[in-house]
Amino acid sequence: MSSIGTGYDLSVSTYSPDGRLFQVEYAGKAVEAAGVAIGLRCSDGVVLGVERILHSKLLVKGANRRIQSLDDSIGLASAGLLADGVHLADRGRDEVWNFRETYNAPIPTQILADRLSMYVQAYTAYSSVRPFGVSSLVAGVDKTGPRLFCIEPSGVFYGYRGYAVGKGAVLARTELEKAVGKETEEGGVALTCREGVLEVARIIHLVHDDNKDKEFELEMTWISPESNMKHAVVPADLLAEADAKGKAALEEGMEED
């Protein structure tokens, strides 16, 4: 970041001499500071999980959700500036409404991710706005099956089998690669949603370890056969089980060290 302070990093409509858009990169920094959000595509659905960091103990338990619904079978988990995540979800619901009004059919997950990414891109192209300070995981099940996408502040989006954004995302992605890697091995099968919930919870606990000073709540949703292929919160008993197992796995790992 040698260009810091040279004036080429003050507006999103200004390139630096070597062709970078620093304001977009800075927006990415806001993402890296936020609690991790993880998505995992499973054999029978998709699982989303976030580490909801509690900045005060006066916060109501279980409230202040970070994962939002865009359609009956599409969820969105953002990491970054909270208010930007809500803005993007609002826009997502508009797209859902608009698509259904035009085609009388539910919006495919990929089309939604595409439209949202174009919206995000527009905020990287004008000096009169700033980029979105969020990376967002879009999870959905449609005719093409379970899908997972991630939209970055730059407006690019890619499909994933598993992905993580936010603080500790790099470690989380390594763990996801291990989990997803098994399915590509000889005779390997993809995790089911139920297994996916446990896996995502485990990884969230694992990556949280780095900043133990702040408490967090585990928040998880899924689109699975058990939720009638609708985007819904993971049932309380399964969430509690996943939370406990994630915690236990972490302690086990520490003993090994």
């Binding site: 619904s69 009956d72 619901r93 259904r100 985007h231």
Partner: peptide, 9 residues
Amino acid sequence: RADRSVSLT
């Protein structure tokens, strides 16, 4: 449907 989506939050 829109109301249902918001009610997850």
